[in-house]
Amino acid sequence: MKTEAVVRRYSRQVRSLVIGRRAQRAKLVVLGQHANEGLLAKAFIYFMLSIIAYLYLQPFFYMISTMLKGLADLLDPTVKWIPRTVDWNNLSRAFDGLKYPRSFFNSLLLAGGGSLLQVFVCAMTGFALARLQFPGKKLFFALVFLTFLIPPQVIMIPLFVTFSKLGWLNTPFVFLVPALFGQGIKSALFIIIFRQFFHSLPKALEEAAMIDGASMFRLFFRIMLPLASSACLVVFLFSFIWYWNESYLTSMFLSNDFTPLSNKLSNLEATIFGDNPSMAVMSQNPVTEGTKMAGAFLIVFPPLVLYMIAQRWFVQGIERTGLVD
């Protein structure tokens, strides 16, 4: 009898121990050992990420859906996301109204040329501020940072007068020449990015190159600039997007002779139907919301493809430019 009682007690202890371990395992699975490892935390994180993704992607999905709708689907309130019939005429009308080939070349010239110049000039300036010692270095950096704080509207009239006297209005020089001298769109931010990146590199590289007899220019072009390829990609993509989407400065300095895509969209309706379209013309060939969304898609598509190609290196560059020494 005593043996059976001992066995039963031992069995109960083993059973309770097994149940306790299972409960502990289930608790670890649900809650996790750390705050972000359990199923509950992961479900909450995925829920929040799904909401954020919807908020960011909903306008893009709306643009695609509206672009593919015909006039009947646009006027039908029951058609929300999926059109009954796909209307490709919206794309063709937007393509013609934007004068896409020429406007695309103008935008590519401004965005590509300005971005490449900013990468080169801002990299040199950031390297100088990070590695070189010269009189007035702190004052120069303060002035660079000040240009980032001053809104462009404050200096718009002096810039317009200056460019007019130089004969640069309605030409790409109003954007390319300032970028060549480190005064392009958001150049101060890019200088700060490069300065932060070059600060993160070990000084042993610079000392070893100087011992081998390398000049400062050779040190920059042969060692520092290749190491800064990730930062160059980040600056190029940011600069490209800002130049591509710029509409305020382009509307002030550029006319119809040299108009990028960002300004063509606002004049899409007038371009297709003239400055004063009659109601008869509007009823026969209306500018629908689908045409405008198609024009927006044609403008967004090139930088979107560029980002999709360079996404991996862009994320790596963002991580590296955030390092501190």
Rank of each mutant, 00 (worst) to 15 (best):
V6L: 13
V14H: 05
V18Y: 04
K27C: 11
V29L: 15
V29T: 08
V30L: 15
H34I: 02
A35T: 08
N36H: 06
L40N: 08
I52M: 06
Y56P: 00
Y62C: 11
T66V: 12
K69R: 14
D76G: 00
V79H: 07
K80S: 10
V86C: 10
V86A: 15
N90K: 03
L91H: 00
S92W: 12
F95V: 11
G97V: 10
R102D: 09
F104Y: 02
F105I: 10
G112N: 01
V121L: 14
L129T: 00
P135H: 14
K137P: 07
F140L: 15
F141P: 04
L146F: 05
L159V: 13
L159M: 15
L166I: 07
N170F: 12
N170A: 09
F175W: 02
P178Q: 06
P178V: 08
G184Q: 03
K186P: 00
S187Y: 05
F190G: 00
P202W: 10
A204R: 12
D212S: 14
G213K: 04
M216A: 10
M216I: 08
L219I: 15
F220H: 12
R222M: 14
L227K: 09
S229D: 04
S229P: 04
C232N: 07
L233H: 11
F240I: 04
Y243I: 06
S255Q: 12
F258C: 09
P260Q: 12
L268H: 09
L268I: 15
D275I: 15
P277M: 05
S278K: 13
A294D: 01
P303G: 12
Q311M: 14
Q311A: 15
L323Q: 11
